[in-house]
Write a protein that binds this DNA or RNA. Sequence first.
DNA 1: AAAAACTAAACAAATGTTTGATTAATATTA
DNA 2: TAATATTAATCAAACATTTGTTTAGTTTTT
Lengths: 209, 209
Amino acid sequence: MELNSKQVTIIETAEKLFADRGYDGTSVRNIAEEAGINVAMISYYFGSKEKLLEALFSYRAEGTTQKLVSMLANKVLNPLEKVNMMIEYYIDKFYNQTSFHKIMSREQVASRRSAIAGLIQGFKKRNQQLIKEIIQEGQKAGYFTKNIDIPILMSTLIGSISHAVTTQHFYREINNLQDMPEDQFQKMMKKKLNAHFKFIFKAILTHEV
Amino acid sequence: MELNSKQVTIIETAEKLFADRGYDGTSVRNIAEEAGINVAMISYYFGSKEKLLEALFSYRAEGTTQKLVSMLANKVLNPLEKVNMMIEYYIDKFYNQTSFHKIMSREQVASRRSAIAGLIQGFKKRNQQLIKEIIQEGQKAGYFTKNIDIPILMSTLIGSISHAVTTQHFYREINNLQDMPEDQFQKMMKKKLNAHFKFIFKAILTHEV
DNA sequence: AAAAACTAAACAAATGTTTGATTAATATTA
DNA sequence: TAATATTAATCAAACATTTGTTTAGTTTTT
């Protein structure tokens, strides 16, 4: 879908507001006001509020799977290095698109918007298939142990990162880090999460620590 | 807060609807209709829709910390056994109160309802403190390694379980398990998650697999 | 008789969407 | 090039519903 600059403005404004207040907690007038446009423009460009959400999903989805595919094709990296790259990729993705992932994490709990549910289902299925291939490659090469439950492994990765990122305001308070600048906090968290998950995945995949 | 049976009906109906459609996606008339009561009864008993949500949180929160405290006090179990009990406890908790945790996981992403945010913050702070004590006990006794990042460890546990439970409809589809009866599916998932997290926690806490 | 529980109806405010008109940009013709 | 026609973009206002809450009265319980 081709988007002009005004459409992008609307989508990105909606993204911010949906992330902060939820889809149902955000009115089209909120979006219009924040984006500095007339309410009618939302219907004019997207048809409806719900289709705006779908447009947002399409907008953010493009190029997601691509990265994983190129990782899989890499012939230089061994399977564990690929897994580590995947971990880095997901952590970066969640931090770089926090607003979008807040919306996504809410929508996937129980989306009454079936078009969105279908899109999310599609991402998940596709990505999980790719990761399965990376892990199976490692198993064939004798790097990884057999009997790895990939859905649960992915749930651990996605669920943990998602939880850590979307609730970081709580962790700032719990650990008295309210005054730490955002970029510094993020840098710290990224580093910690990377080390943490690389350790966990190595333990699970190789049974070595 | 003392609750009569009608108030409990309202709270539990609201819980179900909030979990399925979100707080803002559920109207007081939805709740009234589903609960078979007059709309005015919600204001009459709880004051407002938002205070109903607060009442729901209080209703479900009671006795949560209690279990962890009694676990901590246990003198027979060694620290790793305590950690394993905690894992079992959280997995059971999420499965037994799925609706509530769906609401909670949505609210903690970014709650505009400060009273709720405060309550969640309270739970988290209290529970994390208790778990910290269990782990520190294990470190003093020489069972566990030093330098364990408890917030990230908890994020892994809570985030993963929460994600697995709240998105289990996706995992049914991805793994073609749509036809498996709910209780059988849950039993399977519980078993898998238990084994998975006990393995992970042992690896992190003891550096042994 | 007093208090509590319950109800239908009304309230104002907010919701997503459409209408009908106006302005701006682009294409076509003279 | 200048004038005109056509399409796209923008707007304020109106639309019908739906929202959470309150009122004023009735029924039930104590």
